[in-house]
Design a protein around this nucleic acid. Structure first.
Lengths: 211, 211
DNA sequence: GTATGTTTGAAACGTATGTTTTGAACACAG
DNA sequence: CTGTGTTCAAAACATACGTTTCAAACATAC
């Protein structure tokens, strides 16, 4: 991030600020001044603030979904069994490992996703669904084979529940860590939480379907 | 909502708009014009926009936490066993039943909570924790008795995960319903989803703790 | 009926935002 | 060197926001 070009400096800074304070609460002036570029640079390079937001997501999600697709290929090629642990484990290791040099990056990613989903009108949510829905669907098919007794419709919702648990928790980690510290006098890391998340999600996804 | 006083008309309108578009994206002018009151009325009656936001939450959460406390009293008095289903069932029935005349109200409640949690700096989150943390803690103690094999620290995080699943899902219901409709050609109601949520959460909360 | 405290209405204020403009600085091909 | 397209910098622009002001309308008690 030291001496990159203007475009990357903007993206790097915007990514952090958006994750920290949300889209509406982050002004272009805050971004450009912290990035050390001119105010007009955003509109020049991206066209608008909204296009900047999309660019931030694109830079994040495109490599991620590509890596996820590759991992699924590998899984199919080696004949790794479709268990909830295996499938979810891939996603988690990927989310935490895409940028090993910066462990905070994973938290930023989830916090951004949280911001995207609570966005007015579900605007960005739809964008994500249309651009990265394919890999997502493939992931869900593997999960379906892992828990064949759960009807597809039911599984769809359980995946949404899981997404909620992950995104919500990691996007609010800052406050939660403070509460945890106060109540239990214990520090927790992002990796800690994902380790706790896995059994919770597996338990929920393969729970018995009522009636 | 027809001919209530100025204060209530503001609260009614703000509640809906905040849930729909978020706090920052909802202007006082949007609220007051839709509510049919003067722009200055908000600052006159509440002092500031932020105080308005708090007032909206207070009107929502105070009766809710009181009802929750009463239900827990009743549970203890009648000796109802502490099972995950019983404890979580109380919360869900309460959230869905506090305003039976308006089924959308529950969705608004969760959407508001979602907005609160993704708020910059966790400002509101802390307010909620200090004002309604007591009932929350009591609820967690009942849950702890329901799953004594899960360590308290682990349970704390599982409750957070559950909160995430609930809030995230119901706060994004609008988009999710559209996706569900497109993928499965099925409509879903808020009650539908909470019915699906219960076994998922129970499965996650009482999952085995690794190593 | 008058006086007093409360609520409303219309307008203005100050500020912060996203965006646009204009011209200088720069890179590089002819 | 010259010309052309790209990038940057400073300033200004238009707009939307939360808030404040101040007088009019209202309600209530004396």
């Amino acid at each position: 991030m030291a001496q990159a070009g203007t475009v990357d400096r903007i993206l790097d800074t915007a990514e952090v600020l958006f994750a920290q304070k949300g889209f509406a609460e982050t002004s272009l002036r805050a971004i450009t001044s912290k990035a050390g570029v001119n105010l007009a640079a955003v509109n020049y390079h991206f066209g608008s603030k909204e296009a900047l937001i999309q660019a931030v997501f694109e830079r994040f999600l495109t490599p991620f979904s590509a890596a996820l697709g590759a991992k699924l290929d590998e899984m199919e090629a080696t004949g790794t069994p479709d268990t909830p642990e295996n499938v979810l484990g891939i996603v988690f290791r990927l989310a935490l490992g895409t940028h090993p040099e910066d462990p905070q990056r994973a938290a930023i990613f989830f916090r951004l996703s949280g911001q995207a989903y609570s966005q007015p009108q579900g605007h960005l949510r739809d964008y994500l669904h249309t651009h990265y829905g394919a890999v997502f669907k493939r992931l869900q098919e593997h999960l379906q084979r892992a828990v064949p007794s759960v009807p597809p419709m039911e599984l769809f919702w359980r995946v949404q529940f899981s997404l909620g648990a992950v995104i919500f928790t990691l996007s609010g980690m800052q406050s939660l860590q403070a509460i945890s510290k106060a109540d239990f006098n214990l520090d927790v890391s992002t990796a800690d939480i994902t380790r706790r998340l896995l059994p919770f999600l597996v338990g929920g996804i393969q729970a018995d379907v009522p009636e």
